[in-house]
């Protein structure tokens, strides 16, 4: 029987301290322990990208990262993109261009697109398609997704995901949520 491991991480600007089984996957920590169900489990085999979140500012497939590997990191999920009522430019563009049908792949698609625009603020259509290779959409044929990323790129800060950094208030709320085991 393996023993639990303490993990401290910041998620969307809130600090969480949890004891986790070493085999707990990051996506399950986010969804089941913290109640952040925007990151979806599609294929569970590192293929579809629906579980994509940012760890320290870079896109990863959270079904293939152990929660213990995220100890000490800053995690950003789709829930951390909008600032109050203000949608992130990528969210706006997916909305405006109808870059989705069922929406299942959308959170991962947007998080991967943010990584792409951070690396390449003005991508060509081909570069967008290459940059989103890790994300599968079964509805759209990708056409409007590519258009949405291209339109979002016109916004000067589309690639920037301001990880708020844990404020004292956010840390307090996060620690309380973690202690209560929301969604667990």
């Amino acid at each position: 029987m393996s023993s639990n491991v303490p993990v401290r991480l910041s998620v969307n600007g809130r600090v969480h301290e949890l004891d986790v089984e070493p085999r707990l996957l990051l996506v399950h920590l986010l969804r089941d322990r913290l109640g952040l169900t925007g990151s979806h489990v599609g294929c569970d085999t590192t293929s579809c990208g629906a579980c994509t979140v940012h760890v320290d500012g870079e896109a990863v497939k959270s079904c293939t990262v152990l929660a213990v590997q995220a100890d000490g990191t800053k995690v950003t999920t789709i829930e951390g993109l909008a600032q109050g009522d203000q949608l992130h430019p990528l969210q706006e563009a997916f909305w405006e261009d109808h870059g989705l049908q069922c929406g299942y792949c959308t959170p991962g698609m947007i998080m991967a697109a943010a990584d792409l625009l951070a690396r390449n603020p003005d991508p060509t259509e081909e570069e967008i398609r290459h940059g989103l290779e890790g994300n599968l959409c079964r509805c759209t044929g990708y056409h409007n997704i590519v258009r949405a990323v291209s339109d979002a790129a016109k916004h000067p800060h589309a690639g920037r995901i301001p990880h708020p950094g844990p404020t004292p208030e956010g840390a307090a709320i996060g620690l309380e949520l973690a202690r209560e085991g929301l969604g667990a």
């Binding site: 990863v60 290779e133 890790g134």
Partner: peptide, 9 residues
């Protein structure tokens, strides 16, 4: 190699 998310890890 694979895709950007995989290359990030």
């Amino acid at each position: 190699i694979a895709d950007q998310q995989v290359r990030n890890r």
